[in-house]
């Protein structure tokens, strides 16, 4: 700005400095670019999905096979979407209570020194790539779960989900377990964060009323942490639904709709993409892209639901803070 130093004050000193315009445009442009990318994702997926959907000789919604590379392509999303949703929810149901327990352990039960160390370990585990969990799942967990799966089938087969005639190693249950173990550190890490932020004032209020530790947690920590835990669980659900590699290695990749989680059922949109991409022809790739679009929409709905839940709960969290 020194360039105009000797110029009359009235003109150049109050001029916008050079660079402000370009910098403002660059940063605004970056923001807009982000919007463009999001729009482009939807547009290009749709653009590539349409030809494949038109070539489909069966109903995309109800067909239970995936023969997209055939000369008369037949493929449907039903079984895949079912598998994606069921396995993810199963993982969520397994992981969330344990993750909340882990978070409470670190935030309110473990001795302080141990707690910060454990918190660090959980953070690191949240960063372990999913392919590693997949590898662990297929090499270790699949053989390991044969016995317990057979046991569940033998003695609890009367419960429909554990029923079925043929128990397999690579089952929906084992896939869901791997997903659960994968999303557990993420849910635990976020929940621990919000539990630690629970206001000390309210915790002390509960204790001073003669509350036990659990009653104190129920009165002041859990109500405060609920929105955070819900969003953590939703984030975990989104991760589980989008997870590809771990489940591609483990799911039996069948096209059935069945709740028998110990039998050869189980597949997911993402696993099908990973497994089918290598040998897909043009229509086949389009079909996979169409399935990806469905996955995109499902995860979008989950995320929107999470945002809605959080915003509805926000007033309490704000007052407490």
């Amino acid at each position: 700005m020194r360039e105009g130093g000797s110029a009359p004050l009235s003109r150049s000193a109050f001029r916008r400095s050079r660079g402000d315009g370009p910098f403002r445009y660059a940063s605004t442009g970056a923001g807009i670019l982000l919007l463009v990318i999001m729009a482009a994702i939807a547009v290009f997926l749709i653009a590539r999905a349409i030809p494949a959907l038109q070539a489909n000789t069966a109903s995309f919604l109800t067909e239970l096979t995936w023969n997209a590379n055939a000369s008369e392509p037949k493929f449907g999303i039903g079984a895949l979407a079912f598998g994606t949703v069921v396995s993810s929810f199963l993982a969520l149901i397994i992981a969330t209570p344990i993750a909340i327990g882990v978070a409470l352990f670190i935030s309110h039960y473990a001795p302080r020194r141990l707690a910060s160390f454990l918190g660090y370990i959980i953070d690191l585990l949240a960063a372990v790539p999913s392919v590693v969990y997949g590898l662990w799942g297929i090499i270790f967990l699949v053989p390991f779960m044969r016995g317990p799966s057979q046991f569940l089938n033998d003695y609890f087969g009367w419960i429909p989900i554990f029923g079925g005639d043929q128990v397999v190693g690579k089952s929906m249950l084992v896939g869901s377990l791997v997903l659960a173990i994968m999303i557990l550190p993420i849910i635990a890490a976020i929940s621990r964060e919000v539990f630690l932020q629970a206001p000390k004032l309210q915790e002390e209020a509960a204790l001073a009323l003669g509350a036990t530790r659990w009653e104190m947690i129920r009165m002041s920590v859990l109500p405060f942490g609920r929105p955070g835990v819900i969003s953590a669980a939703m984030l975990g659900l989104g991760r589980a639904m989008g997870e590809t590699i771990a489940v591609a290695l483990i799911f039996p990749a069948t096209f059935t709709i069945s709740f028998e989680i110990l039998s050869a059922n189980g597949n997911s949109i993402a696993a099908n993409i990973a497994n089918g991409f290598g040998e897909a022809n043009d229509i086949g790739r389009g079909a996979l892209i169409a399935s990806g679009l469905v996955l995109f929409i499902i995860t979008l709905l989950v995320n929107m639901a999470a945002r809605w839940v959080i915003s509805r709960r926000k007033e309490y969290a704000r007052v407490a803070a």
Binding site: P199, L201, Q202, E204, A205, L209, P223, F224, A320
Partner: peptide, 29 residues
């Protein structure tokens, strides 16, 4: 826990439970 039940306490900054109604706050203990 039973000591605190017998000897009540009021803190420096008011700390009602934010998720509870006025009624529930009083009834909490």
């Amino acid at each position: 826990v039973s000591v605190r039940r017998t000897i009540g306490m009021v803190f420096q900054r008011p700390n009602p439970f934010p998720t509870m109604s006025i009624y529930d706050n009083v009834a909490a203990g």
